[in-house]
Design a protein around this nucleic acid. Structure first.
Length: 504
RNA sequence: GCGCCCAUCGUCUAUCGGUUAGGACUCCAGGUUUUCAUCCUGGCAAGAGGGGUUCGACUCCCCUUGGGCGUGCCA
């Protein structure tokens, strides 16, 4: 049996450093056994998935050297590797489950579900679906489905007994069936949920080992039950500890740079990132900290994986990166610099932006420096003063951060529209408004054209700069307090997000 | 609230019953260097608490505490 592992990111937003972390372990394990590592795109969330994000995932993982043997863009014998192209397969399998009564159609409305949950919260009961439609007569349910009544398909879970999960890192985990509710398998839109799709695909793609984040432990029983219902052999499960923010919460973009592309733009080396990510839960042997992917592959051992939730410490990553930079020969470093950003294609953009403003060639480098930096020296007092009144700058920056995250495409026109929208909402002249942002992004009141600069920097770096600015403002006492941030978020939702809750 | 996971310096970790509890990052001091950085040397700094098991527990078991995740027609 050849070992096959996979990474299955969903293309929503910027490719996450956590995805690289999980991918690294999966790839290292597969390669240790001479097996294959597969990339599967989990785009079953029609609302949030974008092709821009999918491309960015390919780009980011490949840059890190985490190549895949099979995937949407390289093909393979188990395709298609994009879940949105496999909907027939899921529908078919869901139908089988309904036929065997391992699953059932549910006609409950979203309103009823909310009401049920609220009552459970009130009575301090366990939260979960109450099984309202589980007892429906199958024939009757089938008639209603045939009549076109809106419905979802739910998994029928046992009411008693315990589910034993053989986690390769943690040993046996026991979860009582009573605590797992009837999970939705097929959504009202005809798309599967993660639970169904991931089980069906892992089986069909002959995945032998599923190494994923510990956030999945509590849904493992549902997955195991599905394998059983289909009469399939379940893959080996292993749950890695989650990467954390300095405050120990799950790593999030609000508190940290989480975009892989940020790290590329900021000049981190792939081998340093891989080494650091490996360090988060693995040591090849004893005190060995500096190691490459090949060492991780050859030494890979489930017993050497540590389980404490590691805090992602950019400072240590930086130190490690410095180590690798120093290890390069001068010509290799020059090549690294060139392939990073100092090549003709990117330089030409910068040349075009700067030309109208140049009086001497010597003006060039100082003028463009902020485009090649991670952070720039900031004057928080000056930034704050650029706002209409003290405190406004921090608010404006926050609104723009949220708008940037929601932007579908990262292009000059969209970015411009984004600034115009916020300036209008905040009732401030664009010229005044942008003053804050020239300072936040470049550290100066004047710089090259803002929107083009942002396109050039990339979304992840743009967001990072705003994060730096917020930190500086906070330190200077003119930033957003926790309370103010909460208030602002509410105001943002009301005024900017037309309808429905947005994700976090 | 309920379920599950986790627990060694500030941070990442080594230790798989017997160690002065080791290394790395950070910080501090000193040395090399025209400055800085690098590099070298040294230093500060840890087994959450309480019960067991054992001749002997950081290590095994239980409880408490703390933290995390889950509790979505998101993944």
């Amino acid at each position: 049996m050849t070992v096959r592992t996979r990474i299955a990111p969903s293309p929503t937003g910027a490719p996450h450093i956590g995805t690289a972390y999980i991918a690294l372990f999966n790839r290292a394990f597969a390669k240790h056994h001479g097996g294959q590592f597969i990339l599967r795109i989990e785009d079953t969330d029609q609302v949030r998935s974008t092709s821009e994000s999918e491309t960015a995932i390919f780009d980011a993982l490949r840059w890190l050297g985490l190549d895949w043997d099979e995937g949407p863009d390289v093909g393979g014998n188990y395709g298609p590797y994009r879940q949105s192209e496999r909907t027939d397969i899921y529908r078919e399998h869901a139908a089988k489950l309904v036929a065997s009564e391992h699953a059932y159609p549910c006609f409950c409305t979203a309103d009823r579900l909310v009401a049920v949950r609220r009552e459970q919260e009130l009575n301090q009961q366990r939260i979960g679906y109450d099984g309202h439609c589980a007892g429906l007569d199958p024939a009757e349910a089938a008639r209603r489905v045939a009549a076109g009544e809106p419905h979802v398909i739910r998994l029928r879970t046992p009411d008693t007994g315990i589910c034993k999960i053989a986690d390769q890192f943690r040993g046996e985990i026991e979860i009582e069936w009573e605590t797992v509710d009837d999970q939705i398998l097929m959504k009202g839109d005809g798309f599967p949920t993660y639970h169904l799709a991931n089980v069906v695909d892992d089986h069909l793609m002959e995945i032998t080992h599923v190494i994923r984040g510990e956030e999945w432990i509590s849904s493992a029983p549902k997955h195991l039950l599905l394998y059983e219902a289909f009469g399939w052999q379940a893959p080996v499960l292993a749950h890695l500890p989650l990467l954390r923010n300095p405050d120990k919460s799950k790593l999030s973009k609000r508190k940290n740079p989480t975009g892989i592309l940020y790290y590329r733009q900021a000049g981190f080396l792939p081998k340093a990132i891989l080494n650091y990510l490996g360090l988060m839960a693995y040591r090849p042997e004893g005190d060995l900290e500096i190691f490459d992917f090949a060492t991780m592959v050859s030494s890979f051992d489930f017993n050497r994986v540590s389980l404490g939730g590691p805090i992602f410490d950019v400072q240590k990553l930086r130190a490690l990166n410095g180590h690798y930079i120093r290890e390069l020969t001068d010509t290799d470093l020059l090549e690294s610099l060139k392939s990073w950003l100092l090549h003709d294609a990117t330089l030409l953009d910068v040349v075009r932006m700067s030309q109208p403003r140049l009086e001497q060639l010597a003006d060039f480098v100082p003028m463009i420096a902020y485009l090649f930096a991670d952070g720039v020296p900031l004057d928080p007092v000056d930034i704050d003063k650029a706002g209409k009144e003290s405190g406004k700058a921090a608010e404006w920056i926050q609104f723009v951060q949220w708008e940037f995250e929601r932007l579908q495409r990262w292009q000059a026109d969209d970015i411009r529209a984004c600034f115009e929208r916020v300036a209008e909402q905040e009732d401030v002249k664009l010229k005044i408004f942008l003053g804050v942002f020239f300072r936040a992004f470049s550290g100066r009141a004047v710089a090259l054209p803002l929107f083009d600069s942002l396109v050039w920097l990339g979304r992840d770096m743009a967001l990072r700069r705003l994060q730096y600015a917020q930190e500086a403002l906070r330190e200077a006492g003119v930033g957003l307090s926790g309370k103010a941030l909460k208030r602002l978020e509410k105001s943002y939702r009301e005024r900017y997000v037309e309808e429905g809750g947005q994700d976090g």
